[in-house]
Amino acid sequence: MGSIFLLAVTAILIENFVFVKFYGICPFLGVSQKTETAVGMGLAVTFTMTIASALTWPLYYFVLQPLGLEYLETIAFILLIACLVQFIEMFLQKAIPSLYSSLGIYLPLITTNCAVLGVALLNIQKDYNFIESTVYGFAAGLGFLLAIFLLSLVRERFEFANIPKPFRGVPIALIAGGLLALAFSGLRLNF
């Protein structure tokens, strides 16, 4: 139990997916102007990452490995993730239309969020068991949620700040992200 807890804390804070591992930078920069949308995106990604981890693990160990098709993991995983995102999209459209319309174009883009495919591949690479994989997927998603939430808080302030023209938009967001990453790197001992 203790090791699972440690795994989760490491994934959220110490090896944060966005600030340390650089997964999911596109939505991190693209959907972080408003806190509300950012949190919605973070929750959707967390949900997708948890389910994707829970589904890709059995796919690898019960289907690909017995058939000797381990080299197809990238193709198999991305197909599974694409289908999963399609289902989530249909579900949100019916159940929470307000979130669905505010996420807009970014919802199908969760498929091409490298955090989702990244966590699925990492679970296999690190030899996690089923429980560890699911917890790792969930915790890494929470790490993403935390990162995009923090950046969106900073970016909402930018609207009132007098930022030099060339820095407006993505550059200043990158620099704010860099400073947040600096704070996070303080949590790691071997900097």
Partner: peptide, 12 residues
């Protein structure tokens, strides 16, 4: 990682 964000931000 910090440097990555800062260098890319400055270049863009």
């Amino acid at each position: 990682p910090v440097g990555g964000f800062l260098v890319l931000g400055a270049l863009i």
